[in-house]
Structures are given as structure tokens and as C-alpha cells.
Design a protein around this nucleic acid. Structure first.
Ligand code: SF4
Ligand code: SF4
Lengths: 156, 156
DNA sequence: ACATCCTGGATATTAATCATCCAGGTTACG
DNA sequence: CGTAACCTGGATGATTAATATCCAGGATGT
């Protein structure tokens, strides 16, 4: 799994803690965790395309949340960064070699089915958790974090 | 996800269909789906280390199932090939940069928690399905396959 | 006008995967 | 025995994907 998912999740939470007042620069978000700014920018763009963040170009521009955390699921973020493909990619080896079946009913494959079922369980669990849930739990575990973050992003 | 998982699953099913009479060579298993023989051999070795297959060296040697299909879950095969790591790997970006927390309670991280929960759902679903289940469904979908496979592996 | 900052594509760098090869040990068979 | 078949495990190389940077273009505040 792409590590951009981790960056994206942290950035979304940080944006929520900072507040809605003004957009935050990609460089600033990157700086907080010492991430490569240009690369994080790319991930943020993916979030924009997915409608999770909105971006404002130009001076004093940056990124902000496009909707509240309770309307963003983990699934949304993962899909935005990783794409829609599932983990198990079938290369159709059944269709090559002496064992090739004449018709090629990919849809009726017990193996791909079974793996797809597991993938579905994974996605269901991701979709069941919103970033608001995650934030609530994070604040319970580290009550001081929100203030510290707000302060760091506040002074220039 | 490593494509070796797909190879391994197909090979296990093929071995079951061939029967217990004699061990089957890696080259033969590879030939059936036109897979690179030396590389498939490596994946089969992983299955042996995991106790899913047993290997017999020497002339007339090869691989065979170490236990019946109803005692092999998808989780077993995936773990054997992919290793024990979960998909979401945390790179601890929280611990670097200005946002670093003094103590580093990795265990108490809301984000890793949430991702881990989804991973658990995935593993649970994989562990709930045995290869016997998959085989049964495969035979219902393609009743002719077992015979065809047995025949191909039979003539030298 | 000017500095700032997102956008998107091109490009370079690095790591993981995929694949092959070889020396060593083991077994069947004549 | 001796030879051919075949697994084992490590080393090695090729291919592809992930990671990271760069730059020209457009938008926006001051
Ligand atoms: S049998 Fe299933 S897993 Fe195997 S190649 Fe066909 S679709 Fe893919
Ligand atoms: S906060 Fe959680 S996801 Fe983020 S770096 Fe720490 S352990 Fe990893």
C-alpha cells in the first residue's frame, strides 16, 4: 500500500485541527512531518480530484477540507490515493497454456471470487470508519495534540 | 499483492485434482500455465516452509499437499507467499519533524488502529475460506476441469 | 507588476518485484 | 556404484513500480 495514504490521512486531520479560517500550503503541511513537499503536493492533488479537499490557487492559496470529517471515510482517502484496483490482481493464468478453457468466464472464477470477498470485507470496514471517528479517538489518546498543531501552523 | 499468490492457489488446486499418488515436479506445474519454472519453484518452496506442501527431493521427486484442502485456508497461502506484514505500513511520520511527540506510543495511534481494523477484517475473511470451499465452487462452475487436469498431468 | 502557490506533465532516482542461474545435497533406477 | 532427475538456497541480473524532483503555465492577493 502506497505510503501516501498515511500522509493524506495525517494531512486531513491536521487541516481539521487547524480550522477553516484559511487555506494551508502544501509546503507547510509537508514541513510539519518533514515530508517531501513536491510529492505530498501530488497526493493532495489526488485528494482534490476525489473531492475530499478543495484547493485555492494563487497567493495566500493552499488546501482546505471540502467537507466535514464525518463525511469522509477511510475508504474515500484510500481510493483517492491508491486508485480503485483491488489488492489481488488476477493475471488470467488459467487462460494460457494447455489448461486454457475455451470460453473465458472470468466472472465465474472461484479463486478470484474468494479473494474478492476478502477485499470486500476490507473495503466495508474502511467505509464504516469516518475521519471524525479517527479524530475523536486520536484526541482521546493525545489530548494535547490539537492545540500544539494549531499553534505550530499559526506562527507563520 | 504478489502474483505468486495466484500461482500458489492454482498449484494447490491442481495438486488436489491430480491426486495423492505421486509427487509433481515444479516444472510440470509451471508448464500447465506457462509460468516461469524456476520462479514458481521459489513460491512452492515458500509453501513448503509454511507446511502447506511437502517436497520430496531426488529422482521422481516433486511436490505434494502436506494436508487436505479443508485444512488449508486462503490466509495460510497468502501469509506463506506475502509474509506476515499488513498492507498499511506505518512509517511513523508523527515521530519526525516539529510535530514529534515526546513519548512515542505507536500502540496508541488512531490512524494505524483504524487501518489495522480493516486489515483484520480482510484476514478474517481469508481465514474463513478453505481451499476445499474454493475447489467445490470451482467444480460447480467448470465440471470438466478436474478431469482435463488429471489427464494432462497423467501423460508424461 | 510582482511574489506566491496550485496544476499537470516530464523526468530522474530509488526500491521492489520478477526471473534466472549455479553449486550442493538427495533419491530412483539400472 | 554411477548417472540422471529434482529440490534447496543463495547470488545475481532484468524489469517494473514507487518515490521524488523539476519546470512551464495559470490564478490570485498585495
Ligand atoms: S482461475 Fe481465477 S484466479 Fe486463476 S487466472 Fe482465472 S480468473 Fe484468475
Ligand atoms: S500517527 Fe499513527 S499512522 Fe501516523 S505515523 Fe504515528 S503510528 Fe503511523
Amino acid at each position: 500500500m502506497n505510503e501516501g495514504v498515511e500522509w493524506a490521512l495525517h494531512s486531513c486531520l491536521n487541516l481539521a485541527w487547524i480550522g477553516e479560517e484559511r487555506a494551508v500550503t502544501a509546503a507547510r503541511l509537508a514541513g510539519y512531518h518533514e515530508l517531501p513537499p513536491a510529492y505530498l503536493n501530488k497526493q493532495l492533488q489526488s485528494l482534490v480530484r476525489a473531492g475530499i479537499l478543495s484547493s485555492v490557487p494563487g497567493c495566500q492559496g493552499g488546501f482546505r477540507l471540502a467537507r466535514s470529517l464525518d463525511r469522509i471515510t477511510l475508504m474515500d482517502v484510500v481510493t483517492a490515493i491508491e486508485g480503485p484496483d483491488e489488492a489481488f490482481r488476477c493475471t488470467e493464468i488459467r487462460g494460457q497454456g494447455p489448461g486454457a478453457t475455451t470460453g473465458r468466464p472470468t466472472a465465474e472464477c472461484a479463486i478470484a471470487d474468494a479473494m474478492g470477498r476478502a477485499d470486500l470485507a476490507w473495503r466495508r470496514e474502511l467505509a464504516a470508519q469516518t475521519l471524525a471517528d479517527v479524530r475523536a479517538r486520536a484526541e482521546r489518546q493525545a489530548p494535547g495534540a490539537p492545540d500544539r498543531i494549531r499553534r505550530w501552523f499559526a506562527d507563520l
